[in-house]
Design a protein around this nucleic acid. Structure first.
Length: 428
RNA sequence: GUGGGCGUAGCUCAGUUGGUUAGAGCACCAGGUUGUGGUCCUGGGGGUCGGGGGUUCGAAUCCCCUCGCUCACCCCA
């Protein structure tokens, strides 16, 4: 283990630390998201980071890459296996069913923010521990909800000041019409089998729909010449999709229909959507979601419709940073202390520590030196951390019982005997 | 799992026909007022040149292996 850049233990591959400076933007994103989610009537649910492995196998699909090779699965003390959640839709539905909400409060709107885990090779905006924020509207088939969730996502981005994102929507049909289209697509694409890339030839059998979003030019051309799903979904799905599109237009939400938009997770039905941003790397999705009317029954519940999305926080952050740099904006300033307490001479330190705690008790944010540094060094620190005031206490001040306040920006110094007065000055 | 690129100070990086004690900027620390910051000046600490092996009189530099990071593929937020 001593072969790395240094000999210290490092964070596991694809896991990142978040230091105070970076946390500022994270908190902005999270708080804006919370506000917008709650503004639309979604309530936070916190589920465990571990779930019974079977939950993901049944919901995401046994043959999906996520289940086959990307899950962190462990045995625990019982004979069941548990898995670090690779996504949070299934856990939320699990909780919904576990408490039998479909019997008491069938229609529910949830949101969540938290870490997810997938054991894949990390790359731009994609980590092994990553974070998602998302909403789930459970218990209704209403297409208005499909639109509402999209709108919630764009509201979050708009309020964060993110520009340049693009909303793509599509309908992938339901359990009635999708199998028929799948067979048709397979049949049509087979005719071009030799011309498809090696990967797509494999996808032909594994998951035909994936051929539709292949990046290779040749494959794209072939896909464009093949029957489009729009004309092959059932009338119910057609109606649903038409309402979705019309409603998007009603509320002036800009979008494009992308016939080649498919989703990787098995549980999606009807509406699927994606928000992309060019600041990302090769994978430009920052938010993705759709309707999943079969998921709840897949995991053993009654047939209940639901729709939702998950937005990648790291991905959104990258997009946001790019946007803001362009506009020459910096993030919010870090935490700023009201006061840095400069103590001169070791004999004043206990006096200063009492003063420090009195100030904190009064709600003044304050810190002091714990390294026995010189007054000059302490002043430098006061300046570096951007404290509004320095309070300078030496033996002279202790003897006279005064507090010496220095305003860091003006350099003006004030003396007072009255601690209340000092607090007033600081609060001005 | 596969492929490309890259590993020199805490950070960003110079350092290629292989040649003395490996550099800069920033950051950090100290001094320039034995009790006062920001600018400025001076000085300082800090590097097994990712690690191991090989070639050579001599390797940060060339070769092999290895580890790590990164981007991309698969897949996905």
């Amino acid at each position: 283990m001593d072969t790395g850049k240094n000999r210290y233990i490092k964070a596991p591959l694809g896991m990142k630390d978040l230091f105070p400076e970076e946390r500022v933007l994270w908190e902005e994103i999270e708080s804006v998201a919370r506000e917008e989610f709650e503004l639309s009537g979604y309530y936070e649910i916190r589920t465990p980071v571990f779930e019974d492995t079977r939950l993901f196998v049944r919901s995401i699909g046994e043959t999906s890459d996520i289940v086959e090779k990307e899950m962190y699965t462990f045995g625990d003390t019982t004979d069941s296996m548990i898995t670090l959640r690779p996504e949070n839709t299934a856990p939320v539905m699990r909780a919904y069913l576990e408490y039998e909400l479909h019997k008491s409060k069938k229609f529910q709107k949830f949101y969540y923010i938290g870490p997810m885990f997938r054991k894949e090779r990390p790359q731009a905006g994609r980590l092994r521990q990553f974070h998602q924020m998302g909403v789930e509207a459970v218990g209704s088939y209403d297409p208005l909800l499909d639109v509402e969730t999209i709108k919630v996502a764009t509201r979050v981005y708009d309020r964060l000041g993110l520009s340049g994102y693009k909303v793509k929507v599509n309908s992938i049909g339901c359990e009635k019409c999708r199998p028929g289209f799948r067979d048709l697509l397979k049949e049509e694409l087979r005719r071009y089998k030799e011309e498809l890339c090696e990967l797509c030839q494999a996808r032909l059998d594994r998951n035909v729909f994936r051929v539709l979003d292949c990046k290779k030019k040749k494959c794209r051309e072939i896909c464009n010449s093949v029957s489009s799903i729009e004309n092959h979904i059932c009338s119910g799905c057609q109606d649903h999709f038409t309402t979705v599109k019309k409603t998007l237009e009603d509320i002036h939400l800009e979008y494009v229909v992308d016939q080649n938009l498919v989703r990787g997770l098995d549980y999606y039905t009807k509406t699927v959507y994606e928000i992309t941003h060019p600041a990302m790397g090769a994978r430009d999705t920052i938010c993705a979601g759709g309707r999943y009317d079969n998921l709840i029954s897949d995991i053993g519940g009654p047939p209940i419709g639901a729709v939702g999305f998950a937005a990648g926080i790291e991905a959104s952050l990258i997009a946001l940073l790019k946007t803001r740099n362009k506009e020459n904006q910096s993030g919010n300033p870090p935490v700023v202390l009201d006061v840095y307490l400069v103590s001169i001479g070791s004999e004043t330190r206990s006096y200063c520590f009492r003063l420090l705690n009195n100030l904190r008790h009064a709600g003044v944010s304050v810190d002091m030196d714990y390294e026995s540094r010189s007054p000059k060094a302490q002043m430098r620190m006061a300046n570096k951390i951007g404290a509004k005031f320095a309070i300078v206490i030496g033996s002279e001040e202790v003897e006279k019982g005064v507090i010496k306040l220095k305003h860091m920006q003006t350099g003006e110094e004030k003396l007072t005997h009255d601690p209340e007065e000092a607090i007033r000055i600081i609060r001005e």
